[in-house]
């Protein structure tokens, strides 16, 4: 096939540590943190750092310095003091990794990732093709879902991204189930042909990649295709291409998430209001002049800001927070290719 010739570059995965059950891995479930483990340092809601624990290293963050020495041997989930405050040490998960990873590109929101996995009908043993790799956020979620017997082929046109995610997979014990590929799938198709159970596309012109996706999917098993696009025009062209290449069950959906904060609900009667005004805000204690600054502060603390207050039992309510939220990320178009 022309494909093999045109293929730009494949980075072969090294599976040195994959057979060692004690090697660092996202799948390890020891009680205590060991050297070489990837740990998520949870500073506060929305602020996390991923580190590979190594003696002699120090993490500098919002709450000061944290020497890795003091992390080793601590139980997962521990609270630990840094020089200027305390943090928590958490096990890596694909959700926490996507919050903590070094962003090289815009990444998919957790709610989109979660639905993509469902729409791909992914499970251990699935063979999945992805493009583009980007920052590897979804790639991690896909790799963890297909492990230990499936495989993820993740494609990107940018070699540096591919190299980085390959190194991350190695560090996270995911090398055996992943193959990062430098390849423009719109032009040259996927690394495998007639082999996979699902294809995920996050590319500018998905319609160009759809014939290649059809080719990558196993003919005997059939498979699923999911395409993510921000603009409706991309969706229109993608749907047309899917119909043309024999996909069925074509459907386009979108998610608009809403996050809440739990706060005290302060209600007052008309008489109370007449007496003392609404200086007591409806639900929170911010408001008035400086509320923008206070809002920012609360936002930083995020959904957990409630913790700093005494929540009177049973008298709580949830308010939409923050006031400004994502209202669109992209449309997810999904379809089935039947076996032949």
């Amino acid at each position: 096939m022309a494909k093999a010739v045109e293929r730009l570059k494949t980075t072969e995965s090294v599976d040195s540590n994959a057979t060692d059950p004690n090697a660092p891995s996202f799948f390890k479930y020891e009680d205590r943190i060991e050297e070489g483990d990837t740990a998520i340092v949870y500073v506060c809601f929305g602020v996390t750092h991923a580190i590979v624990v190594k003696r002699g290293m120090t993490l500098a963050m919002k709450y000061g310095a944290l020497r890795h020495e003091f992390i080793i041997g601590k139980p997962w989930g521990s609270r630990i003091s840094a020089t200027a405050g305390y943090v928590y040490l958490l096990r890596p998960s694909s959700e926490l990794w996507s919050r903590s990873l070094p962003r090289r590109t815009q990444i998919l929101y957790t709610h989109d990732c979660a639905l993509i996995l469902q729409l791909l009908e992914i499970k251990p043993g699935s063979v999945i093709c992805e493009s583009g790799t980007g920052s590897g956020s979804l790639s991690h979620a896909l790799a963890m879902a297909v492990a230990p017997t499936g495989h993820l082929y993740t494609h990107d046109i940018d070699e540096s991204r591919t190299k980085t995610v390959e190194q991350e997979f190695k560090t996270h014990g995911l090398s055996e189930v992943t193959t990062p590929v430098v390849q423009d799938v719109c032009k040259y198709g996927f690394f495998v042909s007639n082999a996979c159970d699902g294809v995920f596309l996050d590319v500018p012109a998905p319609w160009e990649a759809i014939p290649h996706a059809a080719d990558a999917i196993s003919r005997s098993r059939g498979g699923r295709l999911v395409s993510f696009s921000p603009c409706i025009e991309q969706v229109q062209r993608a749907c047309e291409a899917m119909r043309k290449f024999g996909f069925v069950q074509i459907e386009t959906v979108e998610i608009v998430p809403r996050t809440y904060k739990v706060v005290q609900q302060n209600r007052q009667s008309l008489a109370e209001f007449n007496e003392s005004g609404d200086s007591l805000a409806a639900t929170t204690n911010f408001g008035g002049r400086d509320h923008r600054k206070r809002k920012a502060k609360i936002e930083e603390n995020g959904a957990e800001s409630g913790k700093s207050w005494t929540l009177a039992s049973g008298n709580c309510t949830a308010i939409t927070f923050p006031y400004n939220q994502p209202t669109h990320s992209g449309y997810l178009t999904h379809a089935t290719l039947l076996p032949v």
């Binding site: 990107d156 590319v203 993510f228």
Partner: peptide, 13 residues
């Protein structure tokens, strides 16, 4: 030669 439309993953920060 870069693609015309938007892909978040193609967005350099």
């Amino acid at each position: 030669a870069s693609p015309v439309a938007i892909a978040p993953s193609a967005l350099r920060l």
